[in-house]
Amino acid sequence: MGLIRNLQPERSSEQDEPSRFEEAILPHLDAAYNLARWLTRNDQDAEDMVQEACLRAFKSFDGFYGVKAKAWLLTIVRNTCYTWLGKNRVHDLSTSLDEDVHQAESHVPDPQALLLRFEDNQALRQALEELPAEFREVLILRELEGLSYKEIADVTGIPQGTVMSRLARARGRLKLSLADRMKKER
């Protein structure tokens, strides 16, 4: 019996699973909240999402072996948020992806003025909040979290090749929206 026990894989890591879990998850809590906050656009809902996601993460922690904890947690946060959005904010998820923003972008008047517009945080925040969720999330993951295309593909479940065009559309739309605001204010 003793021999068999000795041949079994080391189990001690399971015993301090909660602390292993804390070590893996807590460093990425800001990233989790940042993504949830930008997806739900509400403080309280974002907190709910993160808590729910941490619980889900804890339950499936057995299958997690310590690689890329951040992308793993963000994937769970994103799925939790999308389930919630599907139930509570379904209009946030429906968008038309087919318009050609590359074309539209060359119609942005006065690029120099637009550069100044970027410095208006309030306008930038609003424009970003108003983007459809699938554009908002790739910008958050790329620009605020610094994730690579591969990691963004892992988190969002879209093909790696689509990440670049999704980002292109997102940036194009964001610029257009800022330009529109500029026009209206004139």
Binding site: L29, D30, W38, L144
Partner: peptide, 11 residues
């Protein structure tokens, strides 16, 4: 602008 615009929401 996105990276320096204090858009990051910390927990």
């Amino acid at each position: 602008a996105l990276r320096t615009g204090s858009l990051y929401r910390t927990a």
